[in-house]
Computed example of a mutant assay.
Amino acid sequence: MVRAGIVGGTGYTGVELLRILVLHPQVEVSVVTSRADAGSRVDQLYPSLRGYCDLQFSPPELKYLQGCDVVFFATPNGTAMLMAEALLALGVKVIDLSADFRIKDPAEWEKWYGMQHASPGLIDEAVYGLPELNRELIKQARLIACPGCYPTAVQLGFLPLLEAGMVDTNGLVADVKSGVSGAGRKAEIASLMSEAGESFKAYAVAGHRHLPEIKQGLARVAGDEVGLTFVPHLTPMIRGIHATLYARLNSRGKDLQALFEQRYREQRFVDVLPAGSHADTRNVRGSNRCQIAVHQPQGGDTVVVLSVIDNLVKGASGQAVQNMNLMFGLAEAAGLETVALYP
């Protein structure tokens, strides 16, 4: 059994990790931390876990985590980088769901996240945890930087086109919508359903902190810098990411449907929909799947890719468990074989 700890067990990604891990056949959740709720029972805060988790929240301290095989950080940015080095020194593997180790240039990270990086020496070691791109590296890793939700949907949508060199990489556009849970479990007026409900808006048009992460990933695949316009939107739903991606084709006549189907044929958690389909967030809700539909409107030189995920599962906690499975030599889909909720 893999002994797992979760730092930050009271947020949406933390409880989503618990939902998945308590049913994982080869994992024992041994520690869940919360500074504010230390000493309280986990199932008191989350009654949905009654009968599945009888732990009490522990303080987020090394002495409670050192007996784990792996520790997940479901914490705000700036927390994992303070504890990762000490855990790694004890032989504990680390999977960080925040952005602390995603961006390879420390100065770029500090620019976008507004703080000094506490562990720049670990950035190069951290493996970017997108299994569809880095599966073999993940298997050997001891520190994983789990991708963000927007970057997951966008990169999976653009990946086949960039690998095949089929599009102009200077004019990529990502028009992406997120449910309110993407803002995290905190008291913030803009993410209250009474504020977000019956409304729809773009935000961070001048620059979102996921932009450098997405560009870094796409540039690696393309072999050069990419020009990307990324505009996020807030939609009045709880879960889901819908990415509508645009690119200019270098030439017409290529079978885009076949390209995507071939690229993801062996990828358990990427589902390329039949030609003419329209991806819908409700069809991935609660699952670790990314569903993709590819279009070439009017047979022209623009390709439109629709990519949908559940931001809390494939966009965060499910993908983190997928990484853990690979790191420990388990079946990649272990604990993740869940059909999406419908309706």
Rank of each mutant, 00 (worst) to 15 (best):
G8W: 03
T13G: 04
V27E: 06
V27Y: 07
V32E: 00
R35F: 14
A38L: 01
D43S: 03
P47K: 08
Y52L: 15
Y52E: 14
L55P: 08
Q56T: 15
F57V: 01
P59A: 15
P60A: 03
Y64G: 12
C68S: 13
T75E: 03
M81I: 02
M81Y: 10
V92S: 12
K93S: 15
D96G: 07
E108K: 12
Q116H: 08
S119V: 02
L122T: 06
A126P: 11
E132G: 13
N134I: 06
E136K: 07
C146G: 09
G148D: 07
P151V: 04
T152W: 07
T152E: 08
T152G: 06
D175G: 09
K177T: 15
V180Y: 04
G184S: 03
E188A: 14
A190P: 01
M193N: 07
A196P: 03
G197V: 11
G197I: 10
G197H: 13
G197Q: 05
E198R: 11
Y203C: 00
A204Y: 08
A206H: 15
K215M: 15
K215E: 15
G217C: 05
A219L: 06
V226Y: 02
G227H: 00
L228C: 01
L228K: 12
F230Q: 01
P232Q: 14
I241W: 03
H242I: 10
L249I: 06
R252V: 11
G253W: 08
K254T: 07
A258S: 06
R265H: 12
R265W: 02
E266Y: 14
R268P: 13
V272Q: 13
S277T: 00
R282F: 00
R285A: 12
G286T: 00
V294E: 13
V294S: 11
T302K: 11
L306H: 09
S307M: 10
I309M: 06
D310E: 11
A316Y: 04
G318K: 05
V321F: 09
A331I: 11
E332A: 06
L336F: 01
E337A: 14
